[in-house]
Simulated scan of single mutants.
Amino acid sequence: MKASPSLLYMIKRAELVVRARLDEVLRPVGVTALQYTALTVLERHDGLTAAQLARDSFVTAQSMADMVRTLESRGYVVRHRNPANRRELLISLTETGHRLIAEVDRPVRDLEHRMTGGLTAEQAEHLRVSLEHAWRRLS
Rank of each mutant, 00 (worst) to 15 (best):
L127E: 05
V17F: 12
A84R: 09
R55V: 05
P83R: 14
S139M: 14
V104Y: 00
P107S: 07
S63W: 03
L42H: 09
R136C: 00
D46I: 11
R136F: 04
L53H: 14
G97W: 07
L90E: 07
T116G: 00
E132G: 04
F58L: 12
H45V: 06
R136T: 07
E132Y: 03
T70R: 13
E88T: 14
H45E: 12
S63Q: 14
R44T: 12
Q52P: 03
A102V: 02
H98L: 07
A61Q: 10
L39S: 13
L42T: 05
D66Y: 02
A3Q: 11
G118T: 01
V77Y: 00
N85H: 13
L8G: 01
R81N: 14
V78W: 01
R128G: 02
L48A: 13
S92V: 04
L7S: 07
G30E: 12
R27D: 11
W135D: 06
V59A: 09
E122N: 04
R87K: 10
I101W: 03
A54S: 10
I11N: 04
T120H: 01
A38E: 13
P5E: 10
M1K: 07
L22M: 15
T32V: 07
V31S: 05
R13K: 14
S4G: 03
E112S: 15
E122K: 12
E112V: 12
I11V: 13
H45T: 15
K2A: 13
A50M: 03
A65C: 02
R79I: 00
S92K: 12
L111S: 07
R55M: 05
A51D: 06
G75N: 11
S57F: 15
R19Y: 04
Q62P: 00
T60S: 15
E15G: 13
A124V: 00
L111A: 00
R106N: 06
A61L: 12
L26K: 08
L93Y: 06
E132F: 02
H113N: 11
R21N: 08
L53D: 01
R137P: 01
E43I: 07
L71F: 00
